[in-house]
Structure formats: C-alpha cells, structure tokens
Design a protein around this nucleic acid. Sequence first.
DNA 1: CGTTAATTTGATCGAAATCAATCAGTGTGG
DNA 2: CCACACTGATTGATTTCGATCAAATTAACG
Lengths: 244, 244
Amino acid sequence: MDALFRRLSFYADLGESELASLNALPHRVETYESGEEIVSRGEDPGEAFVVSSGWAARYISLEDGRSQILNFMLPGDVYDLQVFVTNGADHSVIALNKVAVLEIKRRDILSLFTEGGRTGAAFWWCTLQEEAILREHIVRNGRRSARERVAHILLELHRRAVIAGEGAGETFHMPVSQAMLADALGLSFVHINRVLREFEKTGVIERAKAHITIVDRKRLVEMCDFQEDYLHLDDNPRRLGFNF
Amino acid sequence: MDALFRRLSFYADLGESELASLNALPHRVETYESGEEIVSRGEDPGEAFVVSSGWAARYISLEDGRSQILNFMLPGDVYDLQVFVTNGADHSVIALNKVAVLEIKRRDILSLFTEGGRTGAAFWWCTLQEEAILREHIVRNGRRSARERVAHILLELHRRAVIAGEGAGETFHMPVSQAMLADALGLSFVHINRVLREFEKTGVIERAKAHITIVDRKRLVEMCDFQEDYLHLDDNPRRLGFNF
DNA sequence: CGTTAATTTGATCGAAATCAATCAGTGTGG
DNA sequence: CCACACTGATTGATTTCGATCAAATTAACG
C-alpha cells in the first residue's frame, strides 16, 4: 500500500492511523510482465486494483485493429473501484512494463465506504482525479493540435511520475512506445515521432531510451497552455473525509 | 424523480418501494433557459443533479475560445454524484434547451449510500453508465473518421433519447446545433454540416428542424460499427443492489 | 547473432480545417 | 408591419496538418 499512501499524502496529511487502515485492507499482490493483460474486456474481475509499481494502460480496441488508450496508470493509481456495481469490464488493461498490482475484493472495498472514514474518502478522491484526467484527455484529443497534444501529455506524465515517486527533477522514465503514445493521442506513430524529434531538435526535451528530460519547461508549457490544476493537486484538503 | 425512475427501470425491476425512496429524497427543482449555465467552472455546487427534462451538455473551454463538449445529458441522467468529496467543478454545464434539474444536497446523497439499499446502488449504476459513455466518446473522437463519428453519435443520442422517453420510433428531437455537435466530436461545424447533408442526400437520415429520423439504420450502423453494449442496457440486473 | 520490434526519414495523398459568402429563420424595437 | 440584427445552416474555394505508403536504421533480445 506504500505507493497508494505516498500518493494520498500529496492530497492531505495522513497519519499512522490511515496508513494502518490501508495496510489492514485484505489484498493480494499480482505481477504482470510488459504486454500482459491485467484485465480483459468482458471479464468480471470482481476486484478493485491499486498499481503498486510499474505502468499500465486502459484501452479499447475496435474490430479493425485501431485502438485507443483511455489513460495511463502509474504507481498509486486506483481503478475499477466501482466494481461493486459492475460485472463486466468494457475495456482492457495492459501492463506497459513489469507491473505489480494489489487486488482488493469488492466486499472489502465496500466495507471501507460504509465505514465512512478518511480512508474510504481517500479512495474516492483517487477516482475523482482519474475522471478529471479523463476529461482533460478528451479536450486534449478533441481540440488540440498534434504538437500541443504531445507537449501536454509529456507534462502530465512527468508530473504524475514525480507524484508517484519516480523521476528526479525534470527527468523521468516513460515506458511508453511511440505507437502507444499515438494510440493515446489519436495520432499516427509516424507523426508522434516527427513531433518528438522536433521537440528534441529545438532543445525542448531530451530523450535517452525510455527516459524523457524536460529541458525547456517554459516553452513546453506555453506551447500547449498547460494548466495543471486539472490534476487537483492543491485543492482544499478538507475534502479528504466525507464532508456534509 | 419520474425521469430517473423511468431510466432506472430500463436496468432492473424497480418496485413501489424504490419509487417511494426516490421520492422521499429531499430535493429542489431548478429550471434553466437554453444557453444558461447550470454549473460554472470553478464554483462548488454542493449538490448532485438529476436532469428531469430537457438536454444539457458538460463542456470545458480553452482560453483561446476552442471548446470541447464532454458529454450530453438527457432526462434521467445523474451527475456530480461524487460531490461529497469535491469542492470545485473543473468544467461547466450548459442547458441546450429549457431544462429542469433536481438538485440534491450532498448530505442526502451520502445517506443514500451509507444505507446500502437498492436506491443508492441505482445511483451508482448511473455514474457507471456515464463513465462508459465517456470512454466511448474518447474512442470515437480519437480513432474514428468524421463520418463514423457523426453516425455513431446519432445512433447513441437516438438510443438515449428513446430510453429517456423522448422520440417515437426512429425519430427523435435533438436540440443540438451543428456547432455543438462539432464541439462534441472535435470537428469544425462546417464539416459537420457536410457530413449531415451527405447522410441526408444518401437517404440515411432525414432532418426537420431539430428532429432527426434514422431512415436507414442498417447502413448507419455498419458505417460506424455501432455496438451499443457500451450503454450497458442489457447487463445482468443483479447489479442493482450492492453485491458481495 | 539472427530475428523481431521500435524508431526514423522521405514522399505523397487526402480528410478536414479554414476562409469567405450567402441564405434562412427569428426576434425585436421603432 | 417592416428594417435590422443575430444566430444557425449551407455551399464553394483553398490550404494544411497529419495520414499513409515505403524503406532504412537502430535497438532489443532469445
């Protein structure tokens, strides 16, 4: 639960008791290799998940081979929380590198909510953030140019990597192939490549293997008007805890 | 609560007791004229909403005037349910025609959940469906051509209108300007117009004022490979009620 | 090391954007 | 009741961004 605790600590002050109640949550750890499916479309997982380490992606594929990544999941991300009212995933989740996932049974999730404590609220909080990221994803893909999209997602992923405890300063490890990026941004991988190379050539970013360094953040930010408030990182912390 | 009850009845058998507990829910009715903002970005509504009549749209605008519609809201749709952990909307909601909305205080929503009854589960169910529609929206806008997008959204909106109790047979009232459609699908309104005219000219649809008639459903469906299961209309009804 | 997956670059094409006007409907105020 | 303004729909002409096709180069890896 460390990744999750670390994550939640970005939103509000959590103490020993919250850490304890997280650790007390019954769960099973499962690991997946890069490329493995963690959840497949159609199956009923019956569990909620917390990414403990590694990156994953939720995606939907069309019959003809086209596919669209809905979002990326980094350590500390929670998903399928609503599992207690669903019985079949309408999308799949794939591991982007070696991933460790905590799986929590629906009954345990549910008891967390009915309790009404801060820990339950903290989980909610995560799904809210995820939804906000999804909405931003729609705007990005719907109303931004290719260059803006790439700039924007690089800034988002960097920020999220830092929050997840990965990445030192402006450098972070991004285990996402250009084809994957293309599937996330609704572009062709050829074009993704051109944009990335351009960013590199103009000294905005640097790349080495799967590592990205943001060299000229200012330029990158104004290129896509990145407003990171959609990540809800500095909202009023009163929100952690159900408030009436 | 009629619109909501009607909606929920599509998912599962609801009896007098559920209807009663819905009607017992304290709420305030508010009406808005076409074009009015129901929720504005940044404000903290403090309530959850149920659309009672009329259509609305959630949207986000960029500084430079571009804007993106996240989804449309029809009678029976529920939104901002997660209000009990949020304190500021990151997007706005606008009325597309005359809209009546039921507003429910966060404390009342919350008590519905902690109760653990079928009614609370029913609300959840609505948000799940909304999220599924959002995901489909991402795929549609990210990986489909303009013609596919228009065909797909027409089929979706028709289906949803029928569920909402509007629309007779293949005809339905769609109070959405071409510019709005464009903002939903990430296209220019000029191009939306061309696609609609083409559909009309080839006898796939008919249009009169804000009324759309699907003339050749078969062609429309195969044009965009419309799989309506993402609307989760015929899932196992056991889901209504928290299941362990 | 040989084979496959991922990246890179060039050349060409095309779908949809943009620019520009016109037209239809709907108020609405004088 | 009519001129005027305004919003939404329509159509044409032109441009552009990104897709597609094709090939080479460079990792990655069993």
